[in-house]
Amino acid sequence: MDAASEIDVEMLRSSAAQACGLLKVLGNPDRLLLLCQLTQGEYCVGDLATQTGITQPTLSQQLTVLRHNGMVSTRREGKQVYYGIASPQAMEVMQVLYKLYCQAPHVEEQSVEP
């Protein structure tokens, strides 16, 4: 292996730590569900509760965790607070997870013989 193709272990270690942080936050079903819903756009807390079925105390707690970890941002409009995905990395991971787990499988048309 030549010097140009050597792996920068310290950079990988730092990147691995960041990836672990992201995966740790995503490792909670309620947070995962919230982020999945937020891939569709901004939502206020009431709409998130309705769409996800997560009760208010849990919803607030999980949104706080997501906000503190930089996964979501907030925008105030009057009395309403709207949440949206702030992390490009989280958005990309959510898109992959959606593709792998949430899309309906394509049903191949079966040919009917006469």
Rank of each mutant, 00 (worst) to 15 (best):
L12E: 13
L38R: 01
A3M: 03
L23T: 02
G21H: 08
V81N: 03
L38K: 00
G21K: 06
N69D: 09
S15L: 15
R13D: 10
Q110D: 15
Q61L: 05
D47E: 14
L100R: 14
T58S: 12
E108G: 02
Q110H: 15
A17Q: 14
C36F: 11
Q51E: 14
V107A: 12
A19Q: 14
Q61P: 01
P114G: 09
G70W: 03
H68E: 07
E42W: 10
R13N: 09
L34P: 09
Q110N: 15
V65Y: 00
P105Q: 05
Y98P: 11
E6H: 01
R31L: 06
Q80R: 13
Q95M: 06
C102N: 15
Y98M: 15
P29V: 13
M71A: 08
M71P: 00
S73Y: 05
T74L: 05
S60F: 09
L23N: 07
S111N: 12
Q95V: 01
C44K: 11
V81L: 07
G78L: 05
E6C: 02
E6P: 00
Y101R: 10
C20K: 14
K79P: 01
I7M: 06
T74A: 03
G70T: 02
R67N: 15
T39Q: 06
R13K: 13
C44H: 14
D2G: 09
S14Y: 14
T64S: 05
A90N: 00
T64F: 04
N69K: 07
T64M: 00
S111Y: 14
G84Q: 01
Y83T: 10
S15N: 15
I85H: 00
A17G: 11
G78N: 05
G70Q: 01
V9P: 08
A16W: 01
S73T: 04
Q89R: 10
L22K: 11
C36P: 00
L34W: 07
I85K: 00
Q61G: 04
V45W: 07
M1I: 03
A86L: 14
S14V: 14
K24P: 13
D8L: 10
T52L: 07
Q56M: 15
A19K: 13
A3H: 05
R75Q: 06
Q62E: 14
L48R: 00
H68I: 02
E10M: 12
V72S: 04
M11C: 15
T55L: 12
A4C: 04
L33D: 10
Q40G: 11
L97F: 12
E10W: 10
P114W: 09
T74V: 08
V81K: 02
L48A: 02
N28D: 12
E6F: 02
L33M: 12
P88S: 06
I54E: 04
A104R: 11
V9T: 13
T39K: 04
G21R: 06
P57G: 03
M94S: 04
Q89A: 10
